[in-house]
Design a protein around this nucleic acid. Structure first.
Lengths: 153, 153
DNA sequence: CATATACCCATTGACGCCCATATAATCCCA
DNA sequence: TGGGATTATATGGGCGTCAATGGGTATATG
């Protein structure tokens, strides 16, 4: 599976280390399996992460915004200048920078949420609540959710 | 046959393993025959499952949404983080995650119901009752439908 | 030299792989 | 076509491996 899926809650030890879930590590390209990038989520108090290869895709997305819009500047500033690269040790653990932990309100536990081509790291309770909220929003528009899930072709 | 059809009731052993019915295994593509995805059914207290190919298609669809919209996040959270991938061992067995067993009320036995492009896993009694209920609903509708169509003057 | 971080080793529990058996399904040949 | 032989499926259990976690120590970096 080459997508970040499912959710995991891992502990952060005294040294600040936390295991990237094994299934997430396997999504990273064999070449750069010991490096990920992290940045603040724009829309939620969470951290987003992915392999370094994904950067190009993000750049493309931002490039597709209207160059003269405020959004363009805001997104490109918020994302690119805030990106932090982090190394993964032999045991599959990494350090979450203090600033990002503060932003997400993370202390002793980190909840990892698969998001397909990237993942989010939440303070566990906040993360679970966010999942519920977002499911509730979607259920209001049953049509669109069904559209996503049902078999086409 | 490349569809999930028929129903089976299998036992869950001490280790939590359960056999995916052989005919279901044969539906999975030879390439990814040792991996399936599971998720909570939206409308019923049951687990739905299918091969990973279906997931990749959903990923493609979500990826086509506006990257910066709220819908994008809602979909990717509700779908990717709720999906669980599980491996099928050499004997054709897999583990149902505890959270999903709770959701479906499954303990020692699991009932598999073919649904065409996907399948459902139920607590046996609930599953059989659901089958009866939905058949009853169908018959009722048919009756009123026939009434609509045949009652002239 | 002090703090942070990487590497090494250890522990525990979960999971995958292997082997075994019983029952059911299929085959094959006289 | 009957019936024994072979294969497949569902199920049970032993055991090695790996993932998550904890801690000691070396190394780097200012």
């Amino acid at each position: 599976m080459d997508l970040f899926v499912s959710k995991y809650i891992n502990k952060i030890d005294k040294k600040g280390r936390v295991s990237l879930p094994s299934s997430f590590r396997n999504v990273l390209p064999k070449a750069n399996r010991n490096e990920i990038i992290l940045y603040k989520s724009i829309k939620t108090p969470s951290i987003e992460g992915c392999g370094v290869g994904r950067l190009k895709e993000i750049a493309k997305r931002i490039n597709n915004l209207d160059f003269f819009s405020e959004d363009y500047d805001d997104f490109s500033t918020s994302i690119f200048s805030e990106i932090i690269t982090t190394n993964i040790d032999k045991e599959g653990r990494f350090l979450i920078p203090e600033e990002l932990k503060l932003y997400a309100g993370i202390k002793n536990e980190a909840a990892f949420f698969g998001q397909g081509h990237y993942f989010q790291i939440w303070e566990p309770k906040k993360g679970l609540k966010n999942t519920e909220d977002s499911r509730r929003r979607l259920l209001k528009e049953k049509k669109s959710l069904r559209m996503m899930l049902t078999q086409h072709k």
